[in-house]
Simulated assay, not measured.
Amino acid sequence: MDEVQQYERYLRERITALRSQKGVSEHRLSLELGKSGSYIRSITSGATMPSMKELFNIMAYFEVSPAEFFSGLQGTNTLRAALTEKLRELSDEDLEKVSLFIGWITKV
């Protein structure tokens, strides 16, 4: 599999993972993005790829930055990637606690 195919596969799998985490169907996600009901299915099946603008809309829908969206490309077995995934699952209240803790341990 060449590099471009690996990126395309990652993109499809990442959209599927984020969609599953949020508990939204492909059909519903498509409609909420203002597209036809089969739009996301056409991406996840490999029939098409989103434009850059639509990819940014997908990221905005899931409230992830481009860096967060593509973080798994750098290696899914790293501690940083594992912690990033856990942080995504935390509530805002818990994120505040983590932020305070990080501030405390990084003070010189």
Score class of each variant (00 low, 15 high):
Gln6Arg: 13
Gln6Leu: 10
Tyr7Arg: 12
Tyr7Pro: 00
Arg9Thr: 15
Arg9Lys: 11
Arg12Trp: 01
Arg12Leu: 01
Arg12Thr: 01
Thr16Gln: 15
Ser20Tyr: 06
Gln21Ile: 06
Gly23Glu: 10
Val24Asn: 08
Ser25Tyr: 06
Glu26Asp: 11
His27Gly: 05
His27Pro: 02
Arg28Val: 15
Leu31Asp: 11
Ile43Phe: 03
Thr44Asp: 07
Thr44Gly: 02
Gly46Cys: 04
Pro50Gly: 15
Ser51Cys: 09
Lys53Asp: 15
Glu54Arg: 12
Ile58Gln: 01
Met59Trp: 00
Phe62Ser: 06
Val64Pro: 10
Val64Ala: 09
Ser65Arg: 04
Phe70Tyr: 14
Gly72Trp: 01
Leu73Glu: 00
Gln74His: 08
Gln74Asn: 09
Asn77Lys: 10
Thr78Ala: 01
Arg80Asp: 15
Leu83Asn: 06
Leu83Trp: 03
Glu85Met: 06
Lys86Met: 10
Leu87Phe: 14
Arg88Asp: 07
Glu89Met: 13
Leu90Arg: 04
Ser91Asn: 01
Glu93Asp: 09
Leu95Lys: 15
Glu96Thr: 14
Lys97Cys: 10
Ser99Phe: 06
Ser99Ile: 07
Ser99Asp: 11
Leu100Thr: 12
Leu100Met: 14
Phe101Leu: 15
Gly103Thr: 06
Gly103Met: 05
Thr106Lys: 14
Val108Gly: 14
